[in-house]
Design a protein around this nucleic acid. Sequence first.
DNA 1: GTTAGCACTCGTTAAGAGAGAGTGCTAACA
DNA 2: TGTTAGCACTCTCTCTTAACGAGTGCTAAC
Lengths: 342, 342
Amino acid sequence: MQMDERKRKILRAIVQDYIATAEPIGSRTIARKFDLGVSPATIRNEMADLEDMGFIEQPHTSSGRVPSDAGYRYFVDCLLDPQSISDEEKELIERESSKRIHEIQEVISHTSRLLSELTNLTSIVLGPQRGKSTFGKMHFLPYQPGQVIMVIVKENGTVENHIIDIGENLTAEELQQVAGVFNQKLRGYSLGQVKRNMLHEIYNELSRQRHLIDNALDMLREILDDNEEGERIYLGGTLNMLNQPEFKDLGKVKTLFKVFEENESLKKLLQPYHEGLNVTIGGENTLKEFKGCSVISAAYKVNGLTIGAVGVLGPTRMDYGKAIAIVDFMTRSLTGILTKRR
Amino acid sequence: MQMDERKRKILRAIVQDYIATAEPIGSRTIARKFDLGVSPATIRNEMADLEDMGFIEQPHTSSGRVPSDAGYRYFVDCLLDPQSISDEEKELIERESSKRIHEIQEVISHTSRLLSELTNLTSIVLGPQRGKSTFGKMHFLPYQPGQVIMVIVKENGTVENHIIDIGENLTAEELQQVAGVFNQKLRGYSLGQVKRNMLHEIYNELSRQRHLIDNALDMLREILDDNEEGERIYLGGTLNMLNQPEFKDLGKVKTLFKVFEENESLKKLLQPYHEGLNVTIGGENTLKEFKGCSVISAAYKVNGLTIGAVGVLGPTRMDYGKAIAIVDFMTRSLTGILTKRR
DNA sequence: GTTAGCACTCGTTAAGAGAGAGTGCTAACA
DNA sequence: TGTTAGCACTCTCTCTTAACGAGTGCTAAC
């Protein structure tokens, strides 16, 4: 069967109306609401065709039709005219972005909140990956007797500090010496790349400060560890889901929020972040809990390097045009802000 | 009307049964389940009395009774035999606490998770207050051209770092000089206490580095600011609420989770943290959203100083004995861990 | 190819009946 | 005087039934 212009119009009408009302729509209503110039009977025939083609389906024998996953897919791929974000939205984003923000975490969580507010969906933002970070520089600062503050600057620019025990008291010079050796040997390496012989060299050069070195390496292992939970997930507007009629059932809410609680699964939603913008519709999701949901996601970059992803999650019946426009804009905006910072 | 032993027994039976089943309980059932040695009719009479006294109430004319807030209160104050936590629970806590934990935040979030898991309630933990923190020491570390890492050690021992612009390039010596002046003038002061003349002195001594000083003060203001959102709230096990039959209604879930999203209100739940353990039952809560909930909370300390609070939140129909025992234990445990750390 | 007409399907809603749990009251009993 | 049995009454919950309405597919006419 072939897709002609009238079928396209009808499919678009069905999707748009269902997105707006969440109610199955019948031929009569389509004829009334959308001025297609044909009678309900004709539309009925076309709808039967569309159902055969798999684009729409009937919840039960005598009710209107709703789009199938394939229907949404066709809508997104072929029927959606590119939409840009409204001026108010743009202004809101600009206003928010202009606030003085110091921490990269703040930028991310801001983005997350903004995304969910603008789309009325749930936003998912994958923070910068820790995993692949490499050692940049290390400093020691005095803290308490027997303890020092170890400040680690990673090569991606993030800074972390941790308090570690140094065993016997060391002088400032000795500390500086330790830091110097670490900085010289490890700069640019991730934990996985640290070879045995480097450690040997460090131990050799600094035989006296063994205790400090052990603790420092321990801590470094945690900070740089590839296996670490790593990238934090920022969720925003999870409550928006509750406003969707598809989640008026408490059981669904439970399973949904259960997944929200465990970050690992969420990462999978954004995971295969290809270049550009991704739309994953309903059953295309790998997680069974999200078979009824769609995800719009895109990766963001710092200095041309993809380091995380942002996305929105909602029922398959979501306003794809708007969501796509906003995710796209926010990704660019985030990339811009982060790139400017250093 | 007087409270005699039999009334107490009956009230205890009602509360215990309702806590276990969430169903209104009638005289017949009480007689059957609890061996009180009297007939249902007698129990009926006593129940009428208990209702007059305000301890129990009827959802509707022809159903069993449920405890009122006052009933729970009497139960908690007079009928609850002190309970200690079970060995398995104790073991679980010990096992968890023995893990190597570096950050104070980790300790707190651990506690939060543990609390909710042990009680099957929602846990609320108020992290260490930032508000009252006073300036301890400052260090500058090199970062990028034109920027430095400012490390602030507060007097309560927490360490934070931030990246700030320094305007014109300064030498290491100049930076150290700036830090030295700050450390000398501001040690032990909270932001509110920083007097104009101190700032004048700083500016006078360091006329050249005005840009750096401005930025540093800006940042300090944020770090030490009394008005800052400050203490982070850690929530755990919010999903447990959904398992409670009192939240089988989606509307209630929505309002509940809405409050969960905004931290400020939650603080009020724990807020007036007196010494020792607090039990706030139903209507005693100031927030109307929590009129149907009870909170068990207690403050924890570091070195004898109260710095935060932990608590659990659940429906008024909660297992008070268990919850109280666990909150009590966890508070002590937390105090112990945090005190040991320095 | 399009449309009007029509019988049919199926979910939703409202009303009514019956069951069940529990009460309060009265009267009898120890 | 306190306790108990009996009984009529109330109120919720559930199940059944009937009516309604939205929508469909099919047929025949345009």
